[in-house]
């Protein structure tokens, strides 16, 4: 039995009077690849923000690698455990690609080291290795804004490789990409984390991608876990109910 990295126990979160998440509990083991699906407004982003330690839950217990999340308040300690990737708006468009990749090192670097690196990039080999893994070695010194959307997402991935956290959270990382680019990023992402035995949790709109690239699917609906199953046990009728509009029949 593999050991657990994330334990969620009765996690709840309210925004004003609206319930965003109500008593979620689940355990995630090291090295698992999990897709988080569910209709818009089901609480996927809120859950990922809580997992990332960006938002605090109102009640419940969240253990990250055996310790409560409150022990990870220091950013550079948290960044070794958890890395986040979103859509490509996460990059600094006016910086060269190499600086965006090396930003994954900021948690380890002090102020002066990061200042010097901005002028004369240090640890170039680290950046080059990461860029090589995502297939963008030739764009190392290009300005990030000149890259296409798919390429920018690869740069964000390279930053995560440099940061090298134990858990990777991705909030709709392929939402703004066309199907070919989206599959490309997802397969790259799942391949790269497999090498390092990292844990991957990705929220997705597409059920098809979730089934194809992930071994376990957690579905959220109205802030609750609708199902939490291995991908091969997810049936079409379950999915139909998950995405059913309010008022439609929930049985069947």
């Amino acid at each position: 039995m593999s050991e657990s990295i994330i334990k969620m126990n009765n996690i709840a979160k309210h925004f004003e009077r609206k319930i965003a998440l109500s008593s979620l509990s689940f355990i995630i083991n090291k090295g698992e690849h999990i897709a988080l699906i569910g209709p818009s407004g089901a609480g996927k982003s809120t859950l990922l923000n809580i997992l990332a330690g960006i938002t605090n839950a109102d009640s419940g217990e969240y253990l990250l690698d055996g310790k409560s999340i409150v022990n990870y308040q220091k950013r550079n300690i948290r960044s070794r455990k958890i890395g986040v990737i979103r859509q490509q708006f996460d990059l600094i468009a006016s910086l060269p690609v190499i600086q965006n990749v090396l930003a994954g090192k900021l948690g380890e670097w002090g102020f002066f080291k990061s200042l010097i690196s901005l002028l004369f990039p240090i640890e170039k080999e680290t950046a080059a290795r990461a860029l090589n893994q995502v297939g963008l070695l030739d764009k190392m010194y290009e300005q990030t804004s000149r890259l296409s959307g798919g390429e920018q997402q690869r740069v964000a991935l390279a930053r995560l490789l440099v940061q090298n956290p134990e858990v990777i959270l991705a909030d709709e990382p392929v939402a703004s990409l066309d199907p070919a680019r989206a599959e490309d990023i997802l397969s790259l992402m799942t391949e790269l984390v497999k090498d390092k035995k990292q844990t991957l949790i990705v929220s997705l709109h597409s059920v098809e991608y979730a089934k194809k690239y992930f071994s376990r699917i957690i579905a959220l609906r109205d802030g609750e876990i609708f199902f939490d199953l291995p991908s091969e046990h997810v049936t079409d009728s379950l999915l139909a109910n998950l995405y059913a509009l309010k008022g439609e029949a929930k049985d069947g």
Partner: peptide, 9 residues
């Protein structure tokens, strides 16, 4: 926010 989650001060 992305820089902060990457550990930046």
């Amino acid at each position: 926010k992305a820089l902060e989650t990457a550990g930046a001060s």
